[in-house]
Nucleic acid binder design. Structure first.
Lengths: 213, 213
DNA sequence: CCGCTCCCATGACATTCGTCATCGCCCTTC
DNA sequence: GAAGGGCGATGACGAATGTCATGGGAGCGG
């Protein structure tokens, strides 16, 4: 449309893939990003699996992935995209800024992580930053993640607590984890103690809040 | 239904208030709606309380409210807006299409209810419909709500089940409901039986899913 | 008035859960 | 190689929970 290139930009615009299961949001963000001279939305997807397929086909500069999507979630999609299209930077956007996701996302190689509470201008800036090789994490989310610190739970304790998250009885957790019921109760008890919780449900809540499961 | 030829400039446009705590989404949807000739976003809000205040000040034709917002949620905001600005139609948009919310929203006098998975075009059409006095409910959500049917729980059972939702022990539920612990256990047991659940947690989940608490 | 349902309560019982002590096994670290 | 920690298990005991029977009082439609 224009030959007025941005100061930092090259002649070719940033090629963006947008993935979000909410059409309203996706359409809207797409049209907003397209308003930027140096950004072009070249593909859209309504699910994680679709996002991976489109990324493979179009090889975009950056993929903007919603965290919660049917099928593959944003982080899983990012992993697959990075495996197949390494030069594509991945940015996660999310409504629920839970710190645990941030950690997993960073481990998956995601280059940007920000809540949907940011303005469109910030998103555009972040895209420019990550395609230039940089990283961006929302300061507030980062602070939360840091203040939450490392999990005091062992790997198994976290596993079992996660299985207990939906209120399943001990027996079911035991069979699903291939453990003895007694062992499950021990882990649950240990986890609750470490988390200062009165029962397993409270433990699940605090562990969730801190991003430990 | 009528041949609504949106003859742009001549007729006065639909004046829209947009409320969503996610700036990215709100900005994006606003710019998208503004693309329509006969729609003008005249105000925005990032919370339910703010939405009420802005509605009182601007008296818009229609308020588009996100369901989940800090402070007042979309339905509560709609109630207050309708109380203060009766001529303003309220439309709820939401990510999580749980049937219970639909029922509450309709009871609150909301004129439109749709998930964010719809396209922007649909949203614009819905806005035109509701300002013309009509109603619109997403067909899928409506079907879910109908298939869920009426709650088999008595009022007290639902109360108690709701208090049990966060995994609180019986004693706490009892004191919060001003009931005997034994009574609480009876209600919980009755509710679980009616819902075909093995324990209170499963009961909470199914009741939630059906919109009964 | 009678039957019905909901409300609230009590008591009894079996089951599940939370907690503790203790054990063996496999790692890693010092 | 000894110490420590995570992992998996068992047994035991008190507390919490799920289930049932039973009771009385309030309200409502036939």
């Amino acid at each position: 449309m224009t030959d007025r290139t941005n100061d930092a930009g090259t002649a070719s615009p940033i090629r963006v893939l947008l993935a979000d299961d909410e059409n309203l949001i996706r359409d809207a963000v797409a049209s907003l990003l397209d308003l930027e001279d140096d950004i072009a939305v070249i593909g859209q997807a309504a699910s994680g699996t679709e996002a991976v397929a489109v990324a493979r086909r179009l090889s975009p500069d950056v993929a903007v992935l919603d965290l919660q999507m049917p099928g593959l979630d944003g982080i899983e999609a990012a992993q697959q995209i990075l495996a197949e299209v390494p030069r594509c930077a991945c940015v996660i956007v999310t409504s629920h800024g839970r710190p645990g996701y941030l950690k997993k996302a960073l481990e998956a190689g995601v280059r940007g992580f920000l809540p949907k509470t940011v303005s469109a201008k910030v998103l555009a800036d972040v895209l420019r930053q990550v395609v230039a090789g940089g990283r961006y994490v929302d300061p507030e989310l980062a602070a939360e993640a840091i203040s939450a610190g490392a999990s005091p739970l062992t790997a198994r304790e976290a596993d079992v607590l996660e299985l207990a998250a939906d209120g399943a009885p001990v027996e079911e957790i035991a069979s699903r984890a291939s453990l003895s019921p007694g062992t499950v109760r021990n882990y649950l008890s240990a986890a609750a103690t470490k988390l200062g919780a009165a029962n397993r449900h409270e433990a699940v809540r605090t562990a969730r809040a801190r991003g430990w499961i």
